[in-house]
Write a protein that binds this DNA or RNA. Sequence first.
DNA 1: TATGTGACATCAA
DNA 2: CTTGATGCCACAT
Length: 109
Amino acid sequence: MSKKFSFEEVYKVVKQIPHGKVTTYGAIANYLGSGKSARTVGWAMNSSHQYNDIPAHRVVNRNGCLTGKHHFNGTNLMKQLLENEGMVIKNDQIVDFKSFFWNPKKGLK
DNA sequence: TATGTGACATCAA
DNA sequence: CTTGATGCCACAT
């Protein structure tokens, strides 16, 4: 049941991420119907730079690693934002990531 | 129309 | 446990 999706769909989901929670590219892709298009989701984030309502810092890879921090303003901006949301970052990785994980299927229902 | 790309995910050794 | 290689899909040129 593979389904196609647009970047706009990705943005919509990312914008729905609750404060203090995070999700993964794969989860978004799976929620949109294409579990194998996680890369495309990441690419959508890349384009999200031209927007200002996309909390891309709440989207990380499956390991909870801040993969996209290099694409932010500098280096520690993403980390600061996540810490500001109430989580702890260690070695560019979210501590107890699964506890902060937010599933789009449950969140949006 | 075809080719290249990328902030991932998963498997094998 | 760590590292390397492969598959995958939507978008830009």
